Amino acid sequence: MAVYTLAQAVHADIDIRKSRFIAIAMPVEGRDAAQLEISRLRAVHPAATHVCWALLAGGQSGMSDDGEPSGTAGRPIMEVLRHHELDNVLGAVVRYFGGVKLGAGGLVRAYTDAIASALKDAQRIEYVAQATLTLEVAYPDEARIRRWIAQHGYLLERGSHGALVELSIRLPAAELPAARLALCDLTQGQARITAPEG
């Protein structure tokens, strides 16, 4: 079954009974990336009353009402993300309180409407889990491996030169086994794969 994420971040800004709700939904690679984005939102909106969020990212999912009554912000955001069948997506709503209390039902509707507005025209794309493969090779093998990386459309994240050449390659996780075999073939079994990680 295909899993979908967002092609890029989407935004909406709505006013509900004098409160301003700024909704953002964006693709993220797990909880650490999501926490960085939440911290960035807090820095950009220091006067905001609440920064509520929900993260759908496989086993790293989570949510926060950030001071709103329990279940009135994070859960509604999460339900909208689920309704859109998204994964590896952070949904966040920044609220500037306008002085009129909305009540629990009103808050649920407000947070639901805000994140739904942001996702209204969002482009979904199939999510492909990525992994980083780090290997050490002898200098004569470097050019051959760099050509192989380019031919497959993988990303060379890092290259460093010491006694051996260390290369970190970003590629779809499903292609890791085939990549290991290919790299062994390219280096006559001399490549030392040190760190396959998600």
Rank of each mutant, 00 (worst) to 15 (best):
M1F: 02
M1S: 06
T5A: 05
Q8D: 14
A9C: 07
H11P: 00
I14G: 00
D15N: 15
I16D: 02
S19G: 11
I22M: 14
I22W: 04
I24G: 01
I24H: 05
V28F: 03
L36W: 05
E37Q: 13
I38C: 03
S39N: 15
S39A: 15
L41H: 11
A43Y: 09
V44G: 03
V44H: 10
A47T: 12
T49Y: 11
L55W: 07
L55R: 02
Q60F: 07
S61T: 01
S61V: 03
G62M: 05
E68M: 11
P69R: 12
T72Y: 04
R75V: 12
M78Q: 13
L81P: 00
L81A: 02
H83R: 11
H83P: 02
H84M: 13
L90H: 03
G91H: 05
A92Q: 04
A92S: 12
V93Q: 02
V93T: 08
V93I: 09
V94Q: 06
V94D: 08
V94S: 09
V94W: 08
Y96G: 02
G98V: 01
G99A: 12
V100A: 14
V100N: 13
L107A: 06
V108I: 15
V108F: 13
A110R: 03
T112E: 12
T112N: 14
A114P: 08
A116V: 06
S117T: 14
L119D: 08
L119Q: 05
A122E: 04
I125N: 04
A129K: 15
L133P: 09
V137D: 05
V137W: 09
V137F: 13
Y139C: 03
P140V: 09
D141L: 06
A143C: 07
R144S: 08
R146P: 00
W148S: 02
I149N: 08
H152E: 01
H152D: 00
G153Y: 14
L155N: 11
L156P: 01
H161K: 11
L164A: 12
S168R: 12
L176C: 06
L176V: 15
A179R: 03
A179P: 00
R180K: 10
A182V: 01
L183R: 04
L183M: 07
L186T: 04
L186F: 08
T187W: 05
Q188K: 13
Q190I: 02
I193K: 02
T194L: 09
E197N: 04
